[in-house]
């Protein structure tokens, strides 16, 4: 079982990032996946949490998750919030939407592995929303699939096509760009 918690803000497509991930996992045949929104009254800009459980066996637990293997931070403002890493397992991993390098977070999160993805920059480049609040979810989903080897690029692309309501090609391009970037960095990372 691999458990992920997503932190974003209303309007960033946090829940859809988790749903796209579930779809990509299904299509790539790498196991079962549940995408679980943290249930509340949605408001633009308010903190949004979602979860994903991935397993090669049937998933029975239908609850929030409290000790994730990884956290995914869609909104960089949560990087300073201790709630974003609360309960994260020892040796856990973080996918962070940032234009800084992963090495710059080594002292903030000792013992945790950081995957830095410039999702904001990628989203803006592909014209996904205004520069002040771009839709980063497809880029982030691409990064997550690559960082944890959860889906191949073709399954990711199909999942994005199935989910996004508009700007399909731009979203596919953003997801693929982030996927390739993280894959390349993982390739260069020390074993």
């Amino acid at each position: 079982m691999f458990e992920i918690r997503f932190h974003g803000r209303g309007g960033q497509g946090t829940v859809m990032a988790a749903k796209m991930l579930a779809d990509a996992v299904l299509r790539s045949g790498r196991g079962e996946c549940l995408a679980i929104p943290e249930f509340g009254v949605e408001r633009r800009g308010a903190p949004v949490t979602a979860y994903a459980r991935i397993s090669d066996k049937p998933i029975h637990a239908r609850t929030r998750l409290y000790n994730p293997d990884a956290v995914v931070i869609l909104d960089p403002s949560f990087a300073d919030d201790p709630a974003a890493t609360a309960g994260l397992k020892r040796g856990g991993e973080i996918v962070l939407n940032t234009e800084k390098s992963a090495a710059e977070f080594a002292s903030r999160w000792p013992g945790l592995r950081v995957h830095a993805v410039p999702a904001r920059r990628i989203a803006v480049k592909h014209g996904l929303g205004p520069a002040t609040s771009p839709m980063v979810n497809t880029a982030v989903c691409g990064a997550v699939c690559a960082a944890f080897n959860l889906a191949d690029a073709r399954s990711l692309e199909a999942a994005v096509r199935e989910t996004v309501p508009a700007k399909v090609e731009a979203n596919v391009a953003a997801a693929r760009e982030a996927y390739a970037l993280i894959l390349e960095e993982a390739g260069h990372a020390p074993a």
């Binding site: 988790a18 749903k19 579930a22 779809d23 299904l26 079962e32 996946c33 549940l34 995408a35 679980i36 929104p37 249930f39 998933i59 239908r62």
Partner: peptide, 12 residues
């Protein structure tokens, strides 16, 4: 079905 726990959870 359970509100949110099933109604809003995505699965295959």
């Amino acid at each position: 079905l359970d509100g949110f726990t099933l109604s809003h959870v995505y699965e295959p």
